[in-house]
Design a binder for these strands. Structure first.
Lengths: 194, 194
DNA sequence: TGCTATGTACACCGATTTGTGTACGTAACG
DNA sequence: CGTTACGTACACAAATCGGTGTACATAGCA
């Protein structure tokens, strides 16, 4: 609403339309959900004409899929690369989420879209599998006797905390972290610990 | 599409309109989700005129809330009343879901509606708290040293399995049950077991 | 300079959404 | 019987949805 709004001969916002669209997607799809965010509103926030949006993305469905693919992957996958932590600490670090996480967007997309064939749903599935694989890999480094099992278990805890945080509107990751600690200690033979 | 369809002077479907509406809600909201089910389709399945539907429910939002309240509570709460099982067995029985459960409808509603103030979201929260309380109560019967903690942990496992089953399109409750077994055994002192 | 890619403004489409207004049947019950 | 509550048919409103058509402006590059 400032003076920098589009005049009758609209101020040009520049060439980075695609990035602005994806940035607005991150904000709006997270804050309001996918279904409750119309393309009109999204374009208004991105300061992009609707025509431009549809020149970059063939449909909203494809935009949603790209939104998931471009989802800032620094939080979760980042912990797996922290060489300053032991494998065990890395497993536990996956449960320290930055509180600005209302709901895992992959779960949110899968539930909202309600179609397993939707490109975004497919990517959500791939992502969840990849995270579980990373957890399994780290569990193996930590010396777990059954790393696949521990990886899948920890992945389930993360999703449980995410879903429960959303429904109850209260933080559930500490609970999940407590469970994780028990599972990890149970899964790593005493000889491999420390 | 059989001959029993409404003719020009429509065959009367009888007085049980409200029940038919709620029954159709159970079916459609589960199969297609809430947002993707329009009132027109819902009324068609319920064999009820749209006018009648809005005479029973002031709005779709209220219908959704009532759909959750009326949700057949035989599966989950039922296991808590099974006197043929030990408390420990009852806790584990909560993880045996009948596979016809695509996603916990309470989680689904909370995610789809995307508004914590929505009456259905509020009820979902209440329901989740109630289930956790039942688990806590049973955990206390089983002799857990910290029943509140164990109850909350088991509740998180159930929600994690539900969410993960939905996203991955593959059964996750066995994984959750395996974790539950570990947690239960860890939470009950040896003296109280058996 | 002029060409091309990118972005813009804005009206518009058809479909779908929740929700009403109106006038009419009919079943149940006194 | 008549009354009343319940249910019906159908049109329609107002908003919103995803998506397009058209004509124009500008930035970057050769």
């Amino acid at each position: 609403m400032t003076e920098s709004e589009k005049g009758p001969l609209g101020r040009r916002r520049g060439r980075g339309a695609r990035e602005r669209i994806l940035s607005a997607s991150q904000q709006l799809f997270r804050e309001q959900g996918i279904n409750r965010t119309g393309m009109d509103q999204l374009c208004a926030v991105a300061q992009v004409s609707k025509r431009t949006a549809y020149q970059h993305f063939p449909s909203k469905d494809e935009l949603v899929a790209e939104y998931l693919r471009r989802f800032d992957p620094e939080i979760m996958p980042g912990v797996f690369d922290r060489t300053d932590l032991t494998p065990r600490e890395r497993l536990l670090a996956a449960f320290e989420i930055p509180a600005s996480m209302p709901l895992c967007p992959y779960i949110g997309a899968a539930v909202e879209l309600h179609d397993p064939e939707h490109p975004a749903s497919q990517y959500a599935r791939d992502y969840k599998v990849a995270i579980a694989a990373r957890l399994t890999e780290t569990a193996r480094e930590a010396g777990a006797t059954n790393p696949e099992q521990l990886g899948e278990q920890l992945a389930l805890l993360i999703d449980g905390a995410s879903a429960r945080t959303r429904v109850l509107n209260s933080e559930s990751f500490p609970t999940a972290a407590a469970i994780a600690e028990v599972l990890i200690d149970n899964a790593i033979p005493a000889s491999a610990q420390r």
